[in-house]
């Protein structure tokens, strides 16, 4: 038996919003420690790693490890049926062909159940080594979203250049060039608004706007985003999910032809 309950279904809705543009289907690995998803987009340019710890759920039971292949589009449709104040419970048997989503209204007067067929998936699992990065930048997620959206108008990719002074984002295209520089914030009174730059070595990397604009869909999950960068390796773009876990996006850089 697998059962996981979250009082705030809104968290799960936001998680689905954060992956539905990148992934068509994904395997949810459920164990005693929680739920994990690792999946690449169809073009194998980016990778999503989602971790929801069992202790972050209001109720969690997983008698044996389960790998459940799910259609992200279908799951997203189901979660759109949850009221914003509803509680959500995920339930599956030990050898499941289906997973059930149960939504309960706060006054318990409405109970909705949606059963979704699981899918068999051949999945590739990638080993992601623990890495120490040359630059780690933390900034407001709204600001990062804004920068990605604004610069996407000027080119297909954005160059991230991080130095002691701060981080510079730039894009260029047929119409000209756009640059946005962010300096580390001086006072850290408001943690949510802070920009922090931890630099060991300067980095300069170029990334596709298309993928960055998918990652920023996770913005509503967390006030801050963390960007981890080293030259010539994938960007890690991480959003915390409350006290329950995190979503990490890995994006392969573009290289000079």
């Amino acid at each position: 038996m697998f059962e996981a309950r979250l009082v705030q279904s809104a968290i799960l809705k936001k998680v689905l919003d954060a992956i539905k543009d990148l992934l068509t289907e994904a395997t949810f690995e459920c164990s005693d420690s929680g739920i994990q998803v690792q999946a690449m987009d169809n073009a194998h340019v980016s990778l999503v790693s989602l971790n929801l710890r069992s202790d972050g759920f209001d109720k969690y039971r997983c008698d044996r490890n389960l790998s459940m292949g799910m259609s992200i589009a279908c799951m997203s449709k189901i979660l759109r049926c949850a009221g914003s104040e509803d509680t959500v419970t995920l339930r599956a048997l030990d050898n499941p062909e289906n997973i059930v989503f149960i939504f309960e209204s706060p006054n318990k007067e409405k109970l909705a159940e949606y059963e979704m067929k699981l899918i068999n998936m051949d999945q590739e699992h990638l080993g992601i080594p623990e890495t120490s990065y040359s630059c780690i930048v933390k900034m407001p997620s709204q600001e990062f979203s804004r920068i990605c959206r604004d610069l996407s108008q000027f080119g297909e990719s954005i160059t991230f250049a991080c130095s002691k002074e701060g981080i510079k984002f730039s894009a260029s295209g047929d119409y000209g060039q756009a640059t946005i520089k962010l300096a580390q914030t001086a006072d850290a009174d408001n943690e949510e608004e802070a920009v922090s730059v931890n630099m060991q070595e300067p980095v300069k990397l170029t990334f596709s706007c298309r993928y960055l604009n998918c990652f920023i869909k996770a913005g509503p999950l967390c006030a801050q985003v963390q960007l981890s960068m080293s030259n010539d390796v994938p960007l890690v773009c991480e959003y915390k999910i409350g006290d329950i876990g995190h979503i990490r996006y890995y994006l392969a850089p573009k290289i000079d032809d």
Partner: peptide, 14 residues
């Protein structure tokens, strides 16, 4: 011009 690398070229299959 930039060429897009694949994410799988950075990580090993397990």
């Amino acid at each position: 011009n930039h060429a897009q690398k694949k994410i799988s070229s950075f990580f090993s299959n397990i």
